[in-house]
């Protein structure tokens, strides 16, 4: 328990550092969002409105440290300011809509990819030099070596445009009514199928190779030999002795991948016009929407830290050695 608290403390410190950098970085750049917004209205706003806007964005003439404290206070209350690209929606609300879709699309893609890849890695290692081991790793690494956007566009062109098997973009059809109905769920899944498959395809090889290599080295270890010599059934030797231990390094990678889900699915969301976090980020950059960018960066940072903490938790459960190191 003490260990978890200590890790939590560390993550809180890291989060604070991220917030601070997030606050100062845009202020080191020329221009400010209020002027940007003012420029977009091409003189149709009066100077008093600019001042009001500046106040909204926290850009007062107060000293920097006071601005910093105000901004920290706002973030802690969940107030991330007002978006410029989606004016006058608050950033928190804009991010909220994108977050759900990204979590659903990229999150499930990472989980599916990890599960299948790791399982295939166990198969390849156990039947080493067998049929699966001779063609699976090379094929998947070959697929994974394609530039992602190329693979995604090719899939979209062939399967979506030419053959018409999958929709060309968006999270659901224009005429679908959002809600927890079978029809809507099926529609969402149909839209997510192609982007999810492309993510899984390019990342599968990495999971497979990591698991396969760790497991092969563990298959030569004394405790696996002992398990075999004890006359245990093969499945038990493979899963409880070899795979269970080989899983540990993969879990670290899984946690990191999960953390980057929120920022990393940029290309997918652009190619498939998927209304997630990455798509919002591109919109924010195009519109010089600093509050939205800052908000997104903040969410990415917190997601990476949060999943890292989650991995610490999983590790405690998977590896008894960490339990004792902590107490």
């Amino acid at each position: 328990m003490h260990y978890l608290l200590r890790r939590l403390g560390f993550y809180l410190l890291a989060a604070w550092a991220a917030l601070t950098i997030n606050f100062f970085l845009p202020r080191l750049m020329p221009g400010d969002p209020a002027s940007t917004l003012f420029a977009r209205f091409k003189g149709k706003l009066d100077p008093a409105a600019i001042e009001a806007l500046r106040a909204t964005f926290g850009l007062t003439d107060a000293p920097l440290w006071r601005q910093y404290l105000t901004s920290l206070g706002h973030v802690l209350q969940g107030d991330l300011g007002v978006s410029i690209a989606y004016f006058p929606s608050p950033v928190a609300e804009v991010i909220g809509t994108g977050l759900g879709w990204t979590l659903f699309l990229a999150g499930s893609a990472v989980i599916v990819s990890f599960a299948i890849g790791t399982l295939l890695g166990v198969v390849a290692a156990w039947w080493r030099r067998g049929w699966a081991d001779s063609w699976l790793p090379s094929t998947l690494i070959f697929v994974g070596a394609f530039p992602y956007f190329w693979l995604a566009m090719a899939a979209l062109y062939v399967l979506g445009f030419t053959l018409g098997w999958f929709p060309l973009g968006h999270a659901y059809s224009d005429d679908a009514v959002p809600g927890w109905t079978w029809a809507f769920t099926a529609d969402v899944l149909r839209h997510a199928a192609l982007p999810m498959t492309t993510i899984v395809l390019v990342t599968l090889g990495g999971w497979l190779l990591t698991m396969r290599n760790t497991m092969i080295s563990l298959l030569g270890s004394d405790y696996v030999n002992l398990a075999r010599a004890k006359g245990l059934p093969s499945a038990q030797v493979a899963l409880r002795y070899a795979a269970r231990n080989a899983l540990l390094p993969s879990v670290t990678g899984f946690g990191m991948a999960l953390g980057f889900v929120l920022g990393g699915s940029l290309l997918t969301e652009i190619v498939f016009s998927y209304p997630g976090q990455g798509y919002l980020l591109v919109q924010a950059v195009r519109a010089q929407d600093y509050p939205l960018m800052q908000g997104i960066f903040l969410v990415i940072t917190l997601a990476v830290l949060g999943t890292n903490w989650l991995v610490d938790l999983i590790y405690l459960w998977l590896d008894p050695r960490t339990r004792d190191a902590g107490s």
């Binding site: 405790y223 002992l226 006359g231």
Partner: peptide, 26 residues
């Protein structure tokens, strides 16, 4: 047949006790 013989009739104590036990199960 080997599985039946191993351990039931002939067993072994390994060189390094540290490495011969699975670290993640009791």
């Amino acid at each position: 047949e080997l599985r039946g013989m191993r351990w039931r009739r002939m067993s072994m104590v390994f060189q390094s006790a540290m490495d011969a036990l699975n670290p993640v199960t009791t």
